[in-house]
Amino acid sequence: MKIITPIKQVPETSNVKMDEETGTMVRDGVESIINPLDLYAIEAAIELKEEHGGEVIAVTMGPPSAEKAIKEAIAMGCDDGILLSGREFAGADTWATAYTLSRCIDDIGDYDLIFCGLQATDGDTAQVGPGIASFLDLPLATYVSSIEDVHIADDTTYTEPDENYIELERLLEEGYEKLRMPLPALITVVKEINFPRLPTLSGKRKARDKDVTPKNSEHIEMKEEYLGLQGSPTRVVNIDRPKVTRGGKMIDARDESKQEEAVEELINYLNANELL
């Protein structure tokens, strides 16, 4: 079974520092990591490979330095990786990103599943996964919280298309929905699906020795007008910094003598704002 995981390199944002004056993110000294939510997609792919055999290929579109993300994915247990890098891809929004990745995935070919993270922590859009499915006309399941069953026919010569299928659960607002879909299919996963493993020492060694294939629009057939900024319907007009503080009222209730008064003030606040 062949599984492809599109992963994104993002700035490590657990301690984002913002430049107070320009309202932009301070990138100096900020480490780049695999989008944390993509680790769940990688883990899900590796677990399936361990059970059914086959290979997992990580794909990323980004600057040349995004090779590090691919190496990390290989260190976790992916078998191979592709780095889509080129000036023509710069400035891509989710439409152009989904297009580029779908072309690359099509070029790899012969896959059974594509696993994406729910969303990337820099853009938080959650649009690229569904976008790839749309371009490739693959059955799509988003917010997948568990994979119940994957059925792959033993004898592939005479397989009916429906014989290869996956059953999974999606986490929705009101509960869990179970879907059955034929392969190949695309899935975006939520955190509940698994616990991502850490890279092993031997994995790291393997990653070090592995050459990551860099590719661009010269290697893969793509429509120039669909790439990068040119292929992106959306444009950023303005970046603002939201007000950080609400300037709310702080009540010091550390001392026991002040607790009752503090609680009373809270109740008054709730009453005044018709929250009770």
Binding site: K249, M250, I251, D252, A253, K258, L266, Y269
Partner: peptide
């Protein structure tokens, strides 16, 4: 981000 904060 709080409108009312109780420290304690």
């Amino acid at each position: 981000v709080a409108d009312i904060g109780l420290i304690g």
